[in-house]
Design a protein around this nucleic acid. Structure first.
Length: 902
RNA sequence: GGUUGGUUAGUUCAGAGGUAGAACGCUUCCUUGACACGGAAGAGGCCACAAGUUCGAUUCUUGUACCACCCACCA
């Protein structure tokens, strides 16, 4: 049953969005069922952090996935879109700590247990909030299956993976130099460090020879350039390049460290040779500080040097630093420089820039720090990951990202997975207080597996949050159990995410999926670009340039936001978003709404039928266009080209359908062309909407669902579960060219009118279309003449011309008219005394010049024998037709000029 | 140092080997029986630069410049 004329004049999203969302939930349309009669389609959502609220990046990412899920559902797939959230170790711990700090509490005052309780409380509030926000967007996730990376099932999966990797010797513990954030008080993986070019200083420091023997060309010591004089206290050697003639004589000699912990004379250290030294850089000699520099650490291992730590985990000088103890790194640097200078060891300083690592969560300078950590041996896992992509098991879209992935995977380094935090999966390893053996176990052990002692203590550390995210595609479906979900929905069909987490997440999911499921975690991985503000800046709270998706939904509706994000998306370029751009798509919603309103005002209760005999040019054209759109839309979606898919619908609805077809359908719908024509025009409207609404639904689910109901199409069920349209052969009419000519005619006539500044109130005159020049048969288009004849009343209506005649070009030309050539004919608009002869002469001359130019261009092409011989026949023909038509137009324009000048 | 992407209208961006498109902004006109969240007309571009391939390059290739991004190194 149609809602006859009940539609409000303007589209109001707030009234319908909530209503439809609860209906969809109530009817269980989002529920994924294991249905072997249908092909599966599955996506696991990139789980947002529980720390904050939904931002534009989430909205974009989710819109993309929802569009794909809704299309596949309509295409008959059994769709699983599995939602959830991430516990986000450091990020969440930081937020909660900050919150506590505002109340004057530290986590240490609370203790580990109570603190973790607090974080859980936080998670409950903010985790729920972000889920609510996803629902407002219209996400069609199966909410029954919502998971959390730190929930019971997933924690079990994490432990299982840890134990299995440990047993395979793919996880190990060791004392290595790692990235340390002294504020977060934890180790970081290489990926969690962001490097910035920072101004610094080179300190040129002299290390005197221990034996006091001066040696040319060095004098009584050698000079080393360093940016970190505070680490001199931790020096254990000086290294030079082995094949450097200049330094050869020095190898094996000893120097004295120019600073000491007690203020006296420094330790004696050897001069060694190592390939790591670049003889061209700095002074050609490097001080070796294994405990505070990653390269020096490796040199130290090669030469069996001691690891002397002088900086502690809080970023202060430690016991070993003696008189410097307690100074911050910054203060110690100044103080060492001062002392070196006083004692004549500092020769000079030099300004320079170098890149300095910062914690990507809190921006504190990251220190290389020596400590015991857990690592994943990444190489064997990465090799399988590379092979899977090479074998075509996983397809990257756009393809270029494959290269980025390979480069990283082929140079992968071991992954530091332990974090000195409280919020996260605790490492399932127990160290024996008696024998020192480490017991790693899936269930909490009561005794040491080696000596059976009960004196065992669990490792304090937790796992990197990405460790659990890496398991997301299968842990969410019940692994390590063999569940029906895994069997039916794994591997997932598609992963949708941003390029910023290819290494953090995508690569690691691939490695873990292959290792534990023996199958790739997803078949396609779509990498989208990032959302920025209208000036191309990253959106951030501190910059104040954040556009909150929830605000936008409140203001413009979820559909407008979704359509904007979809239509603005392009491959390989960031999306610059602004409120104005979203508003554009809000206007589109209103346009669609009003087109539907117009249709409903003109449709009767009983369905109209199309009588093929009553179809006119515009009907055939729009029906044929709809079939093309169905075809293209389906193809674009399959190619994940969501941007083009959205723009195609936008342009079709606004341009072809509203601007042209609806206007042209008005006389028939009014009944001006008889009852049969009215019924057929109604049938065409019906046909367009019944096809168009399903195509639009994945992008703008709310408004289309409302309209589907208003049109009465929802017999039995909702649009959300309607079938995806297929092109209909009976509507493939070949009328594109004729319609094009019709449109050109209308546009030209309107243009003439606008040029003459004649308003419709002032005057509705007569126009004559002169067409069909017999002496130029190659430039003739009989189908156009026929079509124009049929649609002449429409030309008159659209151009607001009272009277219109179609005549032959051999017929006499009307007097006192504006004219313009079109095709092989011309359009004359009789304007009577209003005609400004001088202005018209100028205009005609311009038109003549432009036609002559195109004719000349085509001619020069045709004059080249190579062109005629080598260009495809149809291109040559086109040029010939262009010349012929142009020549006809030149003649006509010359005639007109002559008759006007008289 | 290396990788990848970008350079098209005032702005933001599509685009395709065969005469350059949209949105927003701008100018003029129009409250016409769906829509002023609208309609009509218009102005506005050596498609960054250079060479090559081609009958033909804004489109393909290679360089150059500039802008982004990422990776590595930085004593």
């Amino acid at each position: 049953m149609r809602k006859d004329g009940e539609l409000a004049k303007g589209y109001a999203p707030e009234a319908i969005e909530e209503k439809w969302y609860s209906i969809w939930i109530e009817k269980e349309f989002f529920n994924a069922e294991i249905d072997k009669s249908k092909p599966p389609f599955s996506i696991v959502i990139p789980p947002p952090n529980v720390t904050g609220s939904l931002h534009m990046g989430h909205a974009f990412n989710n819109t993309f996935q929802d569009i794909l899920c809704r299309v596949r559902r309509m295409q008959g797939y059994s769709v699983l879109w599995l939602p959830g959230t991430d516990h986000a170790g450091i990020a969440t711990q930081n937020v909660v700590e900050k919150d506590l700090a505002s109340k004057g509490i530290t986590r240490h005052e609370l203790g580990r247990g109570a603190f973790v309780e607090k974080v859980w409380e936080w998670k409950k509030i903010y985790g729920d909030r972000i889920i609510q926000q996803m629902k407002k967007l219209g996400n069609s996730c199966d909410w029954r299956r919502e998971r959390f990376t730190f929930d019971e099932g997933l924690s079990r999966a994490v432990r299982e993976v840890f134990v299995r990797l440990y047993k395979k010797d793919l996880i190990y513990k060791g004392k290595y130099i790692i990235n340390w954030c002294s504020r977060c008080h934890t180790a970081l993986s290489d990926l969690e460090v962001e490097y910035d070019e920072t101004p610094g200083k080179f300190y040129y420091v002299r290390y005197p020879f221990e034996d006091g023997v001066a040696t040319e060309p060095f004098g009584d010591g050698i000079v080393v350039a360093t940016t970190r004089p505070e680490t001199i206290l931790g020096d254990v050697a000086i290294a030079v390049h082995p094949r450097s003639e200049r330094f050869k004589a020095l190898i094996g000699r000893k120097v004295r460290v120019p600073l000491s912990a007690d203020g006296g004379s420094g330790r004696v250290i050897p001069i060694i040779e190592d390939n790591m030294v670049d003889p061209e850089f700095g002074t050609g000699c490097v001080k070796i500080t294994p405990a505070h520099d990653p390269n020096d650490f490796l040199v130290g291992l090669r030469h069996d040097l001691p690891q002397l730590q002088v900086i502690d985990e809080n970023g202060f000088m430690n016991e070993e630093a003696g008189i410097y103890k307690g100074l911050s790194i910054k203060d110690a640097r100044a103080r060492s420089a001062e002392d070196l200078e006083k004692q004549g060891f500092l020769l000079r300083t030099e300004d320079m820039t170098h890149s300095v690592g910062h914690c990507h969560r809190c921006n504190t300078t990251v220190e290389p720090y020596l400590s015991e950590q857990w690592f994943v041996r990444a190489k064997p896992l990465a090799e399988r990951g590379v092979k899977a992509v090479q074998d075509g098991l996983i397809r990257w879209v756009p393809e270029q990202w494959e290269k980025t992935y390979f480069q990283w995977m082929e140079n992968i380094r071991d992954w530091c997975i332990s974090r000195q935090l409280w919020w996260g999966h605790r490492i399932p390893a127990w160290t024996c207080g008696d024998c020192g053996h480490v017991t790693v176990s899936g269930t909490d052990p009561t005794q040491c597996e080696s000596c059976k002692s009960q004196n065992i203590v669990q490792d304090e550390d937790v796992l990197d949050t990405w460790f659990s995210s890496a398991l997301w595609p299968f842990s969410t479906m019940g692994w390590p159990e063999k569940t029906p979900e895994l069997e039916y929905f794994y591997p997932t069909s598609l992963m949708v995410t941003g390029f910023d987490i290819i290494f953090f997440w995508v690569a690691r999911m691939i490695m873990m999926g292959l290792e534990f499921m023996e199958k790739e975690p997803f078949k396609d991985v779509y990498i989208h670009s990032l959302i920025r503000d209208e000036h191309g800046q990253k959106m951030s709270k501190s910059q104040g340039n954040v556009i909150d998706p929830l605000d936008m939904i409140d203001k413009y509706g979820a559909d407008a936001l979704r359509m904007a994000l979809a239509a603005l998306s392009t491959q390989g370029r960031d999306i610059l978003l602004s409120r104005g751009k979203i508003e554009t798509y809000r206007f589109f919603m209103n346009k669609l709404w009003n087109a539907a309103r117009f249709a409903l005002m003109n449709l009767d209760d009983d369905p109209a039928k199309i009588d093929p005999a009553c179809l006119r040019l515009q009907d055939r054209w729009i029906l044929a266009r709809v079939q093309e759109v169905v075809e293209q839309e389906t193809r674009l979606i399959d190619e994940y080209d969501i941007g083009s898919a959205a723009r195609l619908l936008y342009d079709f609805v606004w341009g072809d359908f509203c601007d042209w077809y609806l206007e042209m359908s008005k006389p028939a719908l009014r009944g001006d062309e008889g009852e049969d024509r009215k019924r057929t025009a109604q049938g065409v409207l019906d046909e367009v909407f019944v096809t168009l609404l399903p195509l639009l639904h994945p992008f703008i689910p709310f408004v289309t669902e409302e309209l589907w109901e208003a049109f009465g199409y929802n017999t039995g069920s909702a649009l959300m579960v309607a079938a995806w349209p297929k092109p209909k052969g009976e509507y493939r009419f070949d009328v594109g060219r004729a319609m094009q000519d019709f449109q050109d005619t209308v546009r030209t006539l309107r243009n003439l009118r606008a040029e003459a500044h004649v308003s419709p109130q002032q005057w509705m005159g007569k126009a004559v279309i002169r067409a069909g020049r017999s002496e130029r048969p190659e430039a003739q288009r009989p189908e156009t003449a026929a079509a124009l004849k049929e649609t002449l009343p429409l030309v008159s209506m659209l151009c607001r011309v009272k009277e219109i005649d179609l005549s032959s070009t051999s017929a006499p030309r009307p007097s006192q008219c504006l004219s313009s050539v079109i095709g092989d004919g011309e359009i004359c608009l009789q304007v009577g005394d209003v005609l400004d002869i001088d202005a018209e002469l100028v205009r005609l001359k311009q038109e003549l010049a432009s036609v002559e130019k195109t004719v000349a261009a085509s001619r020069s092409r045709l004059d080249k024998p190579d062109f005629v011989a080598r260009a495809p026949q149809e291109v040559v023909e086109k040029e010939r037709a262009r010349v012929a038509e142009g020549q006809a137009q030149v003649l006509r324009l010359q005639e007109n000029l002559k008759s006007l000048s008289r």
